[in-house]
């Protein structure tokens, strides 16, 4: 019996989850890597604002055909691309698109999907049926195809790409939230709140959602990885971020034709995508373990 029954420091379930997460070295490495990416993204934005984009224009998108496809050297540690631009700098400037767009797209689908799932799970019956069948239809369309269709129809702009990805992820989140709402809904503390006369809105907001956040967080962290891949994929197909703006997917796509001339111009953006996805996935796995109450103690 490992139940302890005296008072320790007060700590919430979130705090304990964080304590468990900290012990997971792999997840912490992932978190660290992501934190580095965030710092990079923010620094590049600050540089853009401070220099009024002149640094960006001079070093990131300015072509220098004389030095094209040059391999890594002391001046350019990742080498230069097919237009003679510094791959290292382009990688750094591209971080914001992958990271922020992935995050924003997932945030949008988490909110919309979460609300839809919560409503479906809480009210059940017909409401549930209507919402979830609609989700099933969305789910039946391959997400890449859906995104391609949306972008192709509405044109290639940043917002359209975001929208396309966000929409294709909504069903996943709706399902996750609905499933956890269904299990929480029947718990006695919900009944207790009802017996106190709490309104539906209060029950959803204060009782159900906080308790169904854990699987949602895990799903979201894995979802960001998927969204980054989708953005890269769309760019690769030429439907995402347009050149000359640096973006990992389009960098990879453009480098394709020069794969025999310089290994570095495909490998570097590929590695960037891979490491980011890996970091998000190990973090997501770590979060799942940390938030799973079965592993408590």
């Amino acid at each position: 019996m490992s139940t302890t029954r005296t008072q320790r420091k007060q700590r919430s379930l979130w705090f304990e989850a964080w304590r468990r997460l900290k012990k997971n070295k792999l997840a912490m490495a992932g978190l660290l890597f992501l934190a580095l990416l965030v710092v990079i993204a923010i620094s590049t934005i600050i540089i853009d604002i401070a220099t009024n984009k002149s640094y960006y224009n001079d070093h990131v998108i300015k072509q220098n055909l004389r030095l094209r496809l040059q391999g890594p050297s002391k001046d350019h540690i990742f080498g230069l691309d097919e237009f003679g631009r510094d791959i290292f700098l382009r990688m750094l400037w591209a971080v914001r698109y992958s990271l922020f767009m992935g995050t924003i797209a997932i945030a949008m689908s988490t909110i919309v999907g979460g609300i839809l799932g919560a409503i479906a799970g809480f009210y059940g019956k017909r409401t549930d049926n209507i919402i979830m069948r609609f989700m099933d239809i969305l789910l039946a369309i391959p997400s890449m195809l859906l995104a391609t269709a949306i972008v192709a129809a509405l044109g290639t702009s940043l917002t359209n790409v975001l929208m396309a990805i966000a929409i294709s992820y909504i069903p996943t989140f709706a399902r996750t939230v609905r499933a956890s709402v269904l299990t929480i809904k029947d718990q006695e503390f919900i009944e207790a709140a009802r017996a106190l006369g709490a309104s539906d809105l209060r029950i959803i907001g204060k009782y159900i959602l906080p308790n169904s956040l854990a699987p949602l967080i895990v799903q979201a962290s894995l979802g960001v990885a998927g969204a980054i891949l989708s953005i890269a994929g769309l760019s690769f197909l030429g439907l995402g971020i347009q050149p000359p703006t640096p973006e990992w997917g389009s960098m990879l796509s453009n480098a394709r034709s020069y794969i025999r001339d310089g290994w570095h111009i495909t490998v570097i953006p590929g590695l960037g995508i891979m490491l980011t996805i890996l970091a998000l996935n190990v973090l997501g796995d770590g979060l799942r373990d940390a938030l799973d109450p079965r592993l408590k103690n």
């Binding site: 006695e188 207790a192 709140a193 106190l196 308790n211």
Partner: peptide, 22 residues
């Protein structure tokens, strides 16, 4: 009914499930 709930209440069996863990 909500007004009446002040006068009629319930104590549950399971002290683990009947409290909001958050």
């Amino acid at each position: 009914m909500k007004a009446l709930r002040r006068d009629m209440q319930i104590i549950f069996q399971d002290p683990f499930a009947s409290l909001n863990p958050r």
